[in-house]
Design a protein around this nucleic acid. Sequence first.
DNA 1: CTTAGGG
DNA 2: CCCTAAG
Length: 625
Amino acid sequence: MFLDMVSQTRLEYGFIGYQVPVFPRASRSARVRVPIRKKSGNNEKHAFEILVSVAGDFLQEGETFVPPNCKKDQQNACKNRVLKEQEDEIQSSKCNLSDKETYNEKTLSGYHQIRTVNKFSHAPDQFNLKPYSSLKGFDKLANVSGRNANHSSELGISSLISGEFSVGQFEDARAELSIIQTVKSETLQPTGSLDALEMDCKPPHYFCSGSKTSLFKDWTTLGPSRRSDTIETVSRDDNGNYMADQRIKNLSSSRRWRVSPNLNDGKRRKIFHDGRTSYSRQRSKRISPLKRRDFFNQCRFSGSDRGFQLDDRFNSAADKRVDDDNYCAAIRVASSVASPHPHPGSRDRNVKLRIKSFKVPELLVEIPTTATVGSLKRSVMEAVTTVLGDGLHVGILLQGKKVRDDSKTLIQTGISRDGKHRNLGFMLEPRHAQIKLPRCLGEQGITSHATSFTLDPRTSSISLDPPVAGCINGAQRDHHLVPSLPNISASTTLPNSQSRVSVPAISGEALAVVPIHHRAGRREFVQRRIRRPFSVSEVEALVQAVEKLGTGRWRDVKLRAFDNAKHRTYVDLKDKWKTLVHTARISPQQRRGEPVPQELLDRVLAVHAYRSQQQAKQQQLKSGV
DNA sequence: CTTAGGG
DNA sequence: CCCTAAG
């Protein structure tokens, strides 16, 4: 029933004539996957799904669909329309700014939508997020050891956000996410407030400029197998000019917004989907292929601090890079610092970064006045988790420059000195932009920069306590730090820093509609594991184990020879054996990668021959009997 | 969850 | 490395 409703609604959107963009194709598995139900006969619906998926994913703030044969003046029209609508939104927002409401009502009767929005903006305390019940998972994450600070903070924030929160007062909150209005560019100027961490976000803001005349069938011809070509968009460059552009942008958090232009009233609307549920699913997927049980078993708990050690499965999430500052969900300085009496040359000084709060960008919520307060809370929650929940990783800004090298120590980077952390900023960046830049970490040579990530319930703060290891670069310590925050402010704020959540006018449980998108089998983007070629020593270990155990007992092989290599699953080992056999059979000239000693390959062949022989005999016995 | 095999 | 049918 719901499904029908949803698809019908979609039909009205009238996407037309654009082509599916090339998927970023680091590897086959890294590209967008659109689940297609094999047995369903409704190809049109499938095509729609694909289109929505793809189109929504690749749209960015300010972008709009343009028919393939769109001319320049048409593009300008698109541009003007965007600007006009943005102005309209501001105006309507201002009109209601002065209205006052109370929150102690059971329903939102009498609340105007826009007023509600402004209420959020100006009463942040009322809508801070607090951990839902008992900070699920956060207890266990209370002391995370990662490889470096970047890494840990990313993990910590992800954990924080991925956990379940409710909207409400935050007296007992351990983390605060205040919802603020970031319209004024001044809010991004340095204020000297050490405790303020503000994040300005530029959420996706797009609409369809397609003509209503083209209907469903126009794009159903795309078909699921089509996976190339381009999408033509109009986007805005650094100077605020709009330009036609053929490109593939990163799969930032914009993917969670489905384009849904309502052509009847000419207004932009965004339908929200893919919220919490999806995220947690995704996250657990990332933890796989190791078993969940294993995941927690591998955590090393250490007494009272309940810390645990993370293995390098999380490497893939580290060292992410973003090419496009335009879509950083971020900015600006943060964190009070406690670095008492630093001793130059001391190797184990800590820097404590207290991130008092992250502020999320303005959110627009449309909700019927008959909705309950509870559903409103959930709407806000969904919006916030959508913006922050996934697809983000943490970037570090120092003196306005991105700190890209995750392997540097904090000291080397200059984060540890003299409390001048006015120049230190954290930002959330799209995670999926970096699929193409995996960090290849060899099995060896990983120096562990253990970093603990702690949560202090008393101060409602997250503190980073990185026992910094490594050499000290004196030269880098003596920078005279001048506050120079990145200037992502003015252009990124304003109307397009709004995210809108549309809650259908269903009395009672308005939010009941949102999860439907989950059930409808929304696409998910699962980060492919980084490629980690087997070293010769690993091959040696594998061969040895297989010689002992034979093929077909990959779990035992894993336990025997790769128990400590968390990133090698038994499937990996099985696959490696398969490729080894193949490698051994082809000529040395055809082999790639680090050469495997012929001796090992010979052993591979020997074992393989023996095993196949045994298998053949067994087959004969069976068929003979 | 494991195995086995195709992609 | 991913995906997934089968057991």
